[in-house]
């Protein structure tokens, strides 16, 4: 199993301030799946994505990534996993505002002791692929929302990880740009990557081949496309 969560619970706060964001969630994800996670605000979608993305650790339960238990790893081990196995796309892009497009896309490669020339070739390849090569020297603050999200996708692509996690990737975009972003994610999925998208939008969810519906920290529905 590629991603496996067993009875994962996440509680924020302590004692009377304790809030259960996830409650005994069990989930299995295969490589190459395209999953949409839906649910109302506060249902635990982002918490689930944070745990899958090794940005947070479960309070209870076990999380296995490629068969390896990552529940009790330290910060350095988790950061290594984030760098080598996971890529992220966020609603607000999560780009370094004072950096150029090139520097932002290059970020995941900086920790990999890759040669500068190789790094440059790789970044330029993906910038070309996403049609933003001409923007490479531009500062992020000078870009439109659609362009920023393309930069974020280029950064996810350049990392060449098997898992891409997207938290409301079209939330800040107009319809046309949103559609383009989803097409890019679909393209990445067709290349064999596992895509997990959080969304409120049914249309966005329709790109996925599996839909998980969360409510009150529990999985209410786990439906695959074409399966009744």
């Amino acid at each position: 199993m590629f991603i496996e969560l067993q009875n994962v619970t996440k509680i924020y706060g302590k004692d009377e301030y304790a809030t259960k964001a996830l409650n005994q969630v069990s989930l299995q994800i295969e490589q190459g799946e395209f999953i949409a996670i839906m649910g109302p605000s506060g249902s635990g979608k982002s918490t689930l994505l944070n745990i899958i993305g090794c940005m947070d650790v479960p309070t209870e339960g076990v999380y296995r990534l490629e068969g390896k238990d990552v529940t009790n790893l330290n910060d350095k081990q988790l950061s290594d996993i984030r760098n080598k196995k996971l890529s992220f796309i966020f609603q607000h892009f999560a780009l370094m505002t004072n950096f150029t497009v090139f520097e932002n896309v290059e970020l995941p490669l900086l920790k990999r002791n890759m040669q500068k020339k190789l790094r440059r070739e790789k970044v330029e390849y993906y910038l070309n692929k996403l049609g933003i090569f001409h923007l490479r020297q531009k500062n992020i603050s000078k870009l439109s929302g659609g362009q920023k999200q393309r930069v974020a996708i280029a950064r996810a692509m350049v990392a060449e990880t098997d898992i891409v996690l997207a938290d409301e990737p079209t939330g800040s975009l107009d319809r046309q740009n949103g559609q383009q972003v989803m097409e890019l994610l679909q393209q990445m999925n067709e290349e064999g990557k596992c895509i997990i998208v959080i969304t409120h939008d049914e249309k966005i969810a329709s790109y996925a081949n599996r839909m998980i519906y969360l409510s009150d920290g529990c999985i209410q529905l786990d439906k695959r496309k074409g399966v009744v």
């Binding site: 940005m55 988790l78 950061s79 290594d80 984030r82 970020l107 920790k111």
Partner: peptide, 12 residues
Amino acid sequence: GVMMVTGASKHD
């Protein structure tokens, strides 16, 4: 946060 998301640890 962006640096950490792309792989930087707290140590870095």
